[in-house]
Computed example of a mutant assay.
Amino acid sequence: MPEGRSETPDDGPAVDEHVGRGLLDVDMGPSSAMAHLYRGEIHRMKLWRERLDRTTNWAVILMAAVLTWAFSQPSHPHYILLLGNAAVGLFLSIEARRYRAYDVWRSRVRYLQEHVWAPGLDPDSPLRDEDWRSELAEDYRNPTLKISFEEALAHRLRRVYLPLFAVQNGAWLLRVTAFSADPWPESAAVGMISGVAVTAIVVSLFAAAAVIAYRPRTWHTRGELLSEELRENRTGSGPTAGEDERRI
């Protein structure tokens, strides 16, 4: 058995006796270096969180401007709402890329919380991953993206962009039915493209976005707010140790 490790009384996961030693000391030393490392990761995570919020704000402001202009005059064309949809989709792709970078810093913060601070506060708790030091060191040597672009799209669609698309498409449907002199589907036509084709494209794109957002998958992000159990009044011991991936 490696030095500094001991087995739990029930022969469960190993407990590292040295994890957390000195973390809460006031003297300068390794604990101070770990605290500064953790603070640095929190700071980088915060900066990328602000970048995500900034992109969302741009999308909301653009959507509000498009809706205001589209309904301000009956003569204004309805396809401006579809152009607004395309612009919001562009913001979604930018935000998904930023989310992948944000997840790098958030995953490190969660890793430190799970393997350093939690055992430091409760030294008798079992380790979730005995090789966490080497894995974290390798991540610092060679940083890698932890989630795919499709998973990042799903996160942002579920949290922000799918409701925005629903509002935008609902406004477009209202515009081509209740606020048009021509009956539907002729009122939905754009140039040489028939109204039926335009409507089919809009419905297909929204359905594709909903599939990406809600299809069953294994989440690889290490977000602490992903579990549905957080919204319940739990009386048990919580999730099983080592459950890093959430299935929905």
Rank of each mutant, 00 (worst) to 15 (best):
residue 87 A to W: 14
residue 94 I to L: 03
residue 59 A to H: 03
residue 50 E to P: 09
residue 75 S to H: 13
residue 93 S to M: 14
residue 103 D to R: 15
residue 99 Y to K: 10
residue 53 D to P: 00
residue 98 R to Q: 15
residue 103 D to F: 11
residue 68 T to R: 00
residue 95 E to Y: 02
residue 88 V to A: 01
residue 104 V to T: 08
residue 51 R to V: 04
residue 101 A to V: 14
residue 61 I to A: 03
residue 95 E to T: 03
residue 76 H to S: 04
residue 105 W to T: 14
residue 84 G to N: 02
residue 55 T to A: 07
residue 44 R to N: 10
residue 91 F to D: 09
residue 95 E to N: 14
residue 72 S to A: 13
residue 75 S to G: 15
residue 100 R to P: 04
residue 67 L to E: 09
residue 94 I to E: 07
residue 77 P to R: 00
residue 81 L to Q: 01
residue 49 R to F: 02
residue 44 R to C: 06
residue 101 A to K: 08
residue 61 I to S: 06
residue 57 N to A: 15
residue 79 Y to Q: 00
residue 66 V to W: 05
residue 91 F to V: 03
residue 60 V to S: 05
residue 88 V to L: 01
residue 90 L to M: 09
residue 64 A to M: 08
residue 69 W to N: 04
residue 57 N to Q: 15
residue 93 S to A: 12
residue 60 V to N: 03
residue 96 A to R: 10
residue 82 L to A: 10
residue 87 A to M: 14
residue 93 S to P: 02
residue 82 L to Q: 03
residue 65 A to L: 12
residue 64 A to W: 05
residue 76 H to L: 06
residue 102 Y to S: 10
residue 85 N to Q: 12
residue 97 R to W: 14
residue 49 R to S: 15
residue 87 A to D: 11
residue 68 T to N: 04
residue 43 H to M: 02
residue 50 E to T: 12
residue 101 A to M: 09
residue 54 R to E: 15
residue 63 M to I: 00
residue 99 Y to P: 01
residue 91 F to Q: 04
residue 63 M to P: 00
residue 74 P to H: 01
residue 76 H to N: 04
residue 90 L to C: 07
residue 57 N to P: 06
residue 62 L to F: 11
